[in-house]
Design a protein around this nucleic acid. Structure first.
Lengths: 257, 257
DNA sequence: CGGGAGTTTGACCTGCATCAATGGCAGTGG
DNA sequence: CCACTGCCATTGATGCAGGTCAAACTCCCG
């Protein structure tokens, strides 16, 4: 799979001019801090730049903001900085957190259909949103952009399937372990034979993500702590002490490459 | 989203020559019966045809066959005819049915990773498989093929997210109703204000798909029958008597287009 | 140094899994 | 064509993982 980060850099740069003024209008005065890597490294052609620029819709969101994007049409969103969650709503106010997304992640946010999808900010964010149909049309004329988008979709599908497996088959203990392993891989700082995590989401968000209640999440965290697999400090700091053991706990298949 | 069926027709036709001899070698002597719509209607260019043809790997599978495709590398599979299930395995022999696929469906089957994925035939099948990386490379030089593949991925992601929502939030009753609604939309024959279904999968498959045991699936089917929403005959025939009511039961958001 | 939201812990309950037995469909051989 | 047979589905009885309800605690912010 090729690099998504490159596309992020491209889009950040393309968005800069647009963003600056929008940012000023935003209540929080968030400004872009993204890197401005040379576009040339991407291999994208000039036409792509100009047309992407025309599509760009900058979104600055404050922590806790929900319905960050318009959901009357499908959107492709890039997280420039911050952290967001994608939530789906069923009837009776139940919500499922479909996923968490961080710096340089792409998100495909479908239009409201049998269930409603919304993007919510977990902390102050800088996002760039594109109408999906136009983004896709544009990607078709630029191989690199298309390739990156495809990679993203395949990865998103893969992650979603992993989650389905977890939700359908795994116990509470395994789900929490799986969640921690996944977070370690995505936003963990390497640490001894484990990782150091600073989770931006609440216990409720975690529970809604892995299909458990906050109480059960909390209890499982306690058990993992008692088992010496993790240690915690404060609400969001989690130190994974033994990643291999945690993966075992997560019910992953062992003995592969 | 554009038509996937067209691509199916294309590939069927392209595969015909290849397939015929492979079919003869197959123990079941399955032969292609697919339509041979003119390739011109697809708008795919000639180079695409020739290269797709070179990639084509015909697979004839008998009902019950598992591990239909090689899982050492990711595959793109097209169901020419029949029905298959995509299963994922966690440790301890637990399996999750990630999805059911029917005529003209595309399937992206990832290589074995943290969990193993396998395709299993639910009835005698005619399939065409391509190595994913080469298929994608090829798709990049053909806009229509690329577009169709993208549509497929977006739909697959959408369905997978719906399943995550169901597995994470819904009750047994809602899950069974959701499953039936989904099947009605995909393989149901319209019938009064409902649909007629001939389910090719066992109760176990259904249970493994929606995260329930066979007993619970059976009990919920009975309850739905007692509630007058469906009627059944034999093991596989299900008649949905009131689709709207069943959707309500499925916990879908109401009051939308 | 309060105050309030988020978290942890405890007690209890429920929905679904598990275990067990019966019932019925489909494929086979007489 | 019908009886046999084995698998699959249904139904019932019971147990438990995780949900629910409730209370104490702790972090974080003003």
């Amino acid at each position: 799979m090729t690099e998504i980060n490159d596309v992020a850099s491209l889009i950040i740069q393309i968005s800069l001019m647009h963003a600056k003024q929008s940012a000023a209008a935003s209540p929080t005065s968030i400004v872009f801090t993204g890197a401005t890597a040379p576009v040339a490294s991407l291999g994208a052609n000039k036409a792509t730049h100009l047309r992407l620029q025309a599509l760009t819709r900058y979104v600055g969101a404050r922590s806790g903001d929900s319905r960050v994007t318009d959901n009357s049409a499908s959107q492709v969103v890039l997280v420039v900085d911050g952290a967001v969650k994608l939530i789906a709503s069923a009837s009776a106010g139940r919500t499922q957190v479909m996923g968490f997304y961080f710096k340089d992640d792409f998100i495909y946010v479908p239009a409201r259909e049998t269930h409603a999808y919304n993007l919510c900010a977990l902390k102050d964010c800088e996002l760039v949103a594109f109408p999906a149909t136009e983004f896709i049309r544009l990607a078709q004329s630029d191989k690199t952009l298309n390739n990156n988008f495809l990679s993203h979709l395949l990865r998103a599908l893969s992650r979603c399937r992993e989650k389905s497996l977890a939700l359908g088959q795994k116990t509470a203990r395994e789900r929490v372990a799986t969640f921690l392993v996944s977070m370690a891989e995505r936003i963990g700082a390497p640490f001894s034979n484990g990782a150091l995590l600073d989770l931006p989401m609440s216990r409720r968000d975690i529970g809604d993500n892995i299909g458990l209640t906050i109480e059960t999440v909390s209890r499982q965290m306690t058990e993992l702590r008692n088992a010496g697999l993790v240690s915690t400090s404060g609400r969001s700091q989690v130190k994974i002490l033994d990643l291999a053991a945690l993966k075992q706990e997560a019910g992953h298949l062992s003995g592969l490459s």
